[in-house]
Amino acid sequence: MTKNKFSLRRAVNNMNLVRFRFWFQIVAFALIVYGGYIGLDLGDKLPTFACVFNSEGTGGKCYVGELQHDLKHPLEGFVGFAGYAFLISLGMFAVWFWVLNKGWCGFVCPLGTMQDWLTMAREKTKIRYSEYSWANRGKIKSIKYILLILLLLLPVMIANSVFGLPKLPNGLSMPFCDICPGRMMIPAFTGDFNQFYIDFSSKTDIVMTTIGMIMTGLFLVGSFIKKRFFCYFCPMAALQYVFSKPALLKLYKDGSKCTKCGDCYRACDMDILEIADDVTSKNLVTEDCTLCLKCVAACPEDGCLEANFMGATIFESTKEGFLVRMAMDQNKENHAH
């Protein structure tokens, strides 16, 4: 029994994470984007871009859309049904999120999966990837918080006069959905291209829908040349980070075992420097982390990095695992040549 248990752990630690993640993402993508066709309904508080505009196929709905919709009510409405429904929705979002933490981004998010597919396409074509410069990285990181504040504030300002300012037009009721590339890209996977439009009915609609189209163009090219291009700006990532501390899935680091070799940093799609540099913190789920676990797979030290679910190690770095994966990569390269 003990031997079997040990073998299972060894098999998990030695697994080909890239392949596992690739198939996991395909299954998650199919359920989120096409699940509605088989009657799947995971509710409307999902902490991932299960696009509400994919009306037929979606297997659940993104909470950001629901959040903007809930905030559009007059403030006095929040003492009634709308207020309680808002709290229940926020609570359910947190519960869903706590299960996988940022793993929603790395393993489930259909927009993240699309970006990974675009990265794979680039690698096939052998086009060089790009990186954000260190000088701009801090500014880029703050964009997601600005977007989060705007998506929370603008819907409130439609039904209420905030700080004595005039009420905003109804065209801003779902400001992030207007500009989110998921609105165009996710329904497109079900053959619905109707979300590609510019609305000329008001100035607000012209601006918002045009920004949406620009974002889609930037998303397609940006994700092709930069790994997880959009995740740096994603307000869902910012919202998730607020709830991240009590989540069940964590990325732990034992700083005493770290040699600062930098393999984890080089493997990271989000270029998170702390993963290699920080040897004092235990929990290394940062605001940009997508919990893709590439860093764990790339680490050559026994037990230095681990994915931990409710106190139990589910995947950890080992020397053996590192060598097995190195051999896999070598084989792949040999086959390619």
């Binding site: 291209f193 000329f200 189209m213 620009i214 163009g217 940006g222």
Partner: peptide
Amino acid sequence: TPLEYESKTLAFATVIGVMLVFSLGL
């Protein structure tokens, strides 16, 4: 109909235009 006040052609043109400009810039 929303088609009275929306344009799909212009939307696709915008997406493709942004992709071209961004790609050439890079």
